[in-house]
Each structure stands twice: as structure tokens, then as C-alpha cells.
């Protein structure tokens, strides 16, 4: 029995598989040469059988008819012209693809995510580049009225715990505006910020104030107040330290840790010694947030 030249297409099981690389079967059957046609930029490689496990989420969209019209050398030419970033939707091969189980948009979603990350990093870099030069923690022994500021590196800003010893009260503000305060004696105000590691973003452990640098990107700023007669000290995972002098001549030094982009900046800010903590909060524009009780939810 010979196969009919025009198979019925209304019956699925009789539908003829369209060979890859031939977008116009009718034209090809009539003898039109397609190999000599100029190749479009999104030309695929030679037809091939590709077995893909559906569980590993292949994310390549199905080859379009337009992409399947040109021979393999065209893609090599395209690669040589634009080697760095091939279009995310460019099919790598035409042919029978088994295990095609993902949505066609997943590749472009990945490309968008990648572009967003790069843009975010570029913005942060730009933000940091705009800052005036500042010494690193290894360059400064003490933050005081002369050496007011130092800046940590991106790596120093995010590893381990920043330990501030000698402080008597702390206050913090997260990037989401959650603000709170605590004293070394256990008095609290505002709202704590819990991290995914089940630790406070800023808090006390014994008499040492700690900042969880693994979650530094959740931190906007924190201040450390010292009402004792001893100096404050800051220590990083690297072992680098810096000190802040105790109050003198009616002036006390408050340590302000402020995240700018991906770096932490440490500043010594002088305030009158007789200012209470609440006055210092106001001076630095800390406004404590409070958890509303469920009973106040009137609907």
C-alpha cells in the first residue's frame, strides 16, 4: 500500500511528522532549494535527537518555524559575530525533543533574573563609588573626633558577627523600616528583627552587642550607645578591631553602623553626654515600631 501524498490532518494518529529544518514542506516538495537561502540570525544547529529528562526541568522553548529554516553553518557564523551573550531564546538544535516539560518562558525568565541581578550590582557599585574615600578597619586604631569614619569591604561586611563590646544600649532599623532598641540590662523598645537563622539581626548576647552580618542586607543602620567609663570596641570575624573612646568633656561617642550598598560604614558621632537614649533616638531619627495587638484589629 502506498502512502497518500496528502495525508489526512483531521486524524491525529495519521498526522505526518514534520521534519526539522523544513518549514515549508510544500515548497521543499516542489523542489525549491532552501540551502542557498540567507540564514536568519536565530538559526539552529543540525537536526539531532535529543533526550532530555523532564525531571531536570529543561527550559528551552520549542523551536519555531522561523528558526528551523536555515542550515547549521549559519549558526556558527552568528556565534562568531556575537560570542558573548547569545539570545536567550535561540534554539540550540532542531529535531525531535523528548521530555519537553517546562514552560517556554522559563529561559527568558532566567535571563531577566540575571539582568536584574547585574543591574542591582551595578547600582550598588555606583552607589559605593560615589562615596568619599574612607580608611578601612585595619587603617584606624580608634574612631574619634579626628578619625570619624571607616568603611568595611563587601566581604568584611557580611561574614560572621560584628561584636560591639562596652555598649550600654543599642537601636536598629531594618531595610523594611522595623525599628527597635534594647539596653544591656534587658529593657526593650520597638520590634526585634529575627533572621532566618533564628537569631536577632541586632541584639545582645551577654554584655556584648552583636550584629548578624550574614543578614547584613536586612540592616539599614544601627547605633550603639556607651554610658560607661570604658571605651567601646568593635571586632570583626577577621579579628580586626577598632575602639571608640568613653565620654569626656561632656561629650559621648555614639557608634553608627550604616549600610550603603554592599558595605558597612562605621561612624563615631559625638552627642552631649546628658542626653537620654530617647533624645539620641530622636537625633538619629529612630522611630520605634510597635506590633499592634490582635485585639486592635477591628474588622
Amino acid at each position: 500500500m502506498t502512502a497518500p501524498s496528502n495525508p489526512r490532518t483531521d486524524l491525529v494518529f495519521l498526522r505526518r511528522r514534520i521534519k526539522p529544518g523544513r518549514t515549508q514542506p510544500a515548497a521543499a516538495a516542489s523542489g525549491q532549494a532552501t540551502a542557498s537561502a540567507p540564514a536568519p540570525a536565530s538559526a539552529p544547529a543540525a537536526p539531532s535527537l535529543t533526550l532530555r529528562p523532564s525531571a531536570s526541568a529543561p527550559a528551552r522553548p520549542a523551536p519555531t518555524n522561523a528558526a528551523a529554516t536555515s542550515p547549521a553553518p549559519a549558526r556558527q557564523a552568528q556565534n562568531s559575530q556575537t560570542p558573548q551573550t547569545p539570545p536567550a531564546n535561540t534554539p540550540r538544535s532542531a529535531g525531535l525533543v523528548l521530555g519537553r516539560g517546562t514552560t517556554p518562558s522559563s529561559t527568558s525568565a532566567r535571563a531577566q533574573r540575571l539582568a536584574a541581578r547585574r543591574q542591582k550590582a551595578a547600582l550598588e557599585d555606583q552607589e559605593v563609588k560615589l562615596l568619599f574615600p574612607a580608611p578601612g578597619i585595619a587603617d584606624v586604631y580608634e574612631l574619634n573626633l579626628v578619625d570619624r569614619v571607616l568603611r568595611l569591604s563587601a566581604l568584611q561586611s557580611c561574614v560572621g558577627t560584628m561584636v560591639v563590646s562596652g555598649s550600654t544600649a543599642i537601636a536598629w532599623e531594618s531595610v523594611r523600616g522595623v525599628t527597635g532598641g534594647k539596653t544591656v540590662d534587658g529593657h526593650k523598645a520597638g520590634t526585634p528583627v529575627e533572621t532566618s537563622g533564628n537569631r536577632e539581626l541586632v541584639g545582645y548576647n551577654g554584655r556584648e552587642a552583636l550584629v548578624s552580618l550574614r543578614h547584613v542586607r536586612e540592616l539599614r543602620r544601627a547605633i550603639f550607645i556607651n554610658r560607661s567609663s570604658s571605651p567601646m570596641g568593635v571586632q570583626l570575624f577577621s579579628g580586626d578591631t577598632v575602639a571608640l573612646p568613653p565620654a569626656a568633656d561632656g561629650t559621648q561617642m555614639v557608634l553608627l553602623a550604616h549600610r550603603i550598598g554592599n558595605v558597612l560604614e562605621l561612624r563615631a558621632e559625638p552627642v552631649p553626654h546628658d542626653w537620654p537614649d530617647i533624645k539620641i533616638w530622636q537625633e538619629f531619627d529612630f522611630s520605634m515600631t510597635h506590633r499592634a495587638p490582635v485585639s486592635s484589629y477591628g474588622r
Binding site: 532566567r110 541581578r117 547585574r118 550590582a121 563587601a154 566581604l155 557580611c158
Partner: peptide, 21 residues
């Protein structure tokens, strides 16, 4: 160099070849 490290607080390497996503 430290610019050739990529992690959550430094999302892209100095040459943009490696990106943390």
C-alpha cells in the same frame, strides 16, 4: 583578588563573567 569573589553581598565578579543569582 577580592573582586574575583562572588557571594550574596558581591553579586557579580569584576569582569562580569560570574553572577550570583
Amino acid at each position: 583578588s577580592n573582586d574575583h569573589l562572588v557571594f550574596f553581598n558581591q553579586l557579580v565578579s569584576a569582569d562580569s563573567s560570574v553572577t550570583f543569582i
